[in-house]
Nucleic acid binder design. Structure first.
Lengths: 337, 337
DNA sequence: ATGAAAGCGCTAACAT
DNA sequence: ATGTTAGCGCTTTCAT
């Protein structure tokens, strides 16, 4: 037995318009009438049909979030953070797993568009510039998270990758390390590029020549960390220390180090990018660059909701780009040489 | 400029009904007509309005998932798993963070109901029996995940908590441990209850008397692990080993152990419930009970979609309850006494 | 094979 | 303060 606004109206002996007013706490309803309506609603266990409401209002009170992969800590913090903000403003969230896969990303963006979400937060693969430009040019509000896309002008919230990486490598150099390897992720992402630049800048500043054989590029996943650490360490002139450009690859690199029977920091120093609660209970605890993942995402969500509410965030046609700073957290995974 | 099915119909010089047929790959449309329509769609960059479609079809192709907290590994695996299955069947997922909070859970269940999702997967707090019963009695399809609710008859997918805990504690006993402490979670949840029973059964079987002072109840969060480990270990007659009933509390317990300068397994043995990739690179690697979290959730999602499609999963009015087994993974965090 | 028209459940403009 | 009515964008009978 379906109970809709009409049934409620009949039961309360008012018009559907009045019921609708009560539902939305519209002011001009007599107290007595409101009470009657509320009673009918409660008696019938009526719950508003948000689908019909969205259709009529052309507003869904929903924001879409497309992230890489919730299994990764980084993205699950983002999911939680966006959800918290959305909740605060009475918005719902549709979370989509782009899986770092451009096709899945595109698919989900289309789904979100079809669902007429009020806005989208996207950690982009960087590959769907055309569609995303079209999205932005139609009515959809978009905020990019963590990285930019070549050829797309869009508000974004980023992290200072270059300085973070710089601090990490500078720390290694200050400790006396000279042969410093890097396990980086995609360089065609602004994150990978930034972290790589930070690495190069720190070396250059200390007049350490760049050794191509110490530079490896992976895909930001654990597997990359495992394999590339092996490539770097399984040779006589192995690096004295490793800078690993994200948490999943750091996990992988440590697995390899353990498996090879190497000791941290005696045999090899390591600094990771991105912190984890587990980093604290490793032996030794891990030195990392910590990035403000939660505020990264909450800032983006706040920006998006402002945009949805028509508050102009950007000046002129320049997109608004916010960059949050990153910090080196020194623990025990390097030593003084 | 809004482009809807009517605009497409005009451009293609057909009726809206025909456009609709093309959109849904309805068979009886002439090839030439279909082509004309597809051209119009593509020229206009038309994308179907899923809101209107859902209203008309009374079907949203969306399932709602209410989990405890995506920040926890356990729940993020669930989120990913459900999403994978949903995606396979062309369903969307709305993920909600119940935060292990009965009020938030209720709120989200109402939102999902209002959104007319086709079904709901819920890891229940156990507190909203009335509403959930009402949900089930109205048209909503529900599958419970990981735990049951007192007073609610509903299909569910569970894990064999009791045997998992039993195996963990039995292992400790076999290693020679006698004074075995337990840090458990909520006992008013079937998970906490089951794990506690497994602990008791193992002790009983070996004629080890139960020492109340070795039994602590927390809330399954890291903080509990930190605090309760401190209570258990900060006394002269501290236990020889600890069984910790979930991953977050295990992390917390290890933090306390580190902070107190105790060595695993020399000073204290530990077995955790639930595995993690990080458990492998701890020193020593952690012995754990591993539960099949991914298949737990994918099984539930498959069940839900079957229910949505009208396939009868349960026999008569008995709910279908699937229980998956758990395994002990022996690594290095206990020793032979 | 295609079109006309009703209606999903609600809201908002207008009328009273 | 409340009611009447059109219409959001689509799908689905029922005609043709």
């Amino acid at each position: 037995m379906k109970v809709n606004i009409k049934v409620v109206a009949e039961k309360a002996e008012v018009s559907t318009a009045t019921v609708s007013r009560v539902l939305r706490n519209y002011p001009g309803v007599r107290k007595k009438t409101r009470k009657k309506v509320l009673k009918a609603i409660s008696d019938l266990n009526y719950e508003v049909n948000a689908v019909a409401r969205s259709l009529r209002q052309r507003k869904t009170y929903t924001i879409g979030v497309v992230v890489g992969n919730v299994l990764s800590q980084f993205y699950s913090i983002i999911a939680k953070s966006v959800e918290d903000v959305a909740h605060k403003y009475d918005y719902n969230t549709i979370l989509c797993n782009g899986d770092d896969n451009p096709e899945k990303e595109l698919r989900y963006l289309k789904v979100l568009k079809a669902s007429r979400v009020d806005g989208i937060i996207l950690t982009p693969t960087g590959k769907n510039a055309d569609y995303i430009n079209w999205l932005i040019n139609s009515d959809t509000k978009v905020v990019l998270l963590d990285r930019l896309i070549d050829g797309v002008k869009c508000d974004a919230v980023l992290v200072d990758n270059e300085n973070g990486a710089y601090k990490a490598v500078k720390h290694l150099i200050d400790q006396g390390y000279r042969r410093i390897g890097i396990i980086n992720g995609y360089v065609d992402r602004t994150t990978g590029r930034g972290r790589f630049n930070g690495y190069l800048r720190a070396l250059k500043e200390s007049d350490i020549s760049v050794d191509e054989s110490l530079i490896k590029f992976g895909n930001f996943k654990k597997r990359s960390g495992i394999d590339l650490a092996r490539e770097l360490l399984d040779r006589p002139d192995r690096p004295e220390a490793l800078f690993v450009a994200n948490i999943d690859m750091t996990l992988g690199a440590i697995m390899t180090i353990k498996e090879m029977g190497l000791k941290i920091p005696q045999d090899i120093g390591i600094v990771g990018f991105d912190d984890s609660e587990w980093a604290l209970i490793l032996d030794p605890p891990l030195t990392v660059v910590s990035q403000p993942v939660y505020s990264l995402a909450s800032t983006a969500a706040e920006m998006l909701i402002k945009k949805i509410n028509g508050e102009n965030t950007s000046h002129g046609d320049k997109p608004l780009i916010v960059t949050l700073s990153t910090d080196l957290v020194v623990r025990g995974s390097t030593r003084r040489l």
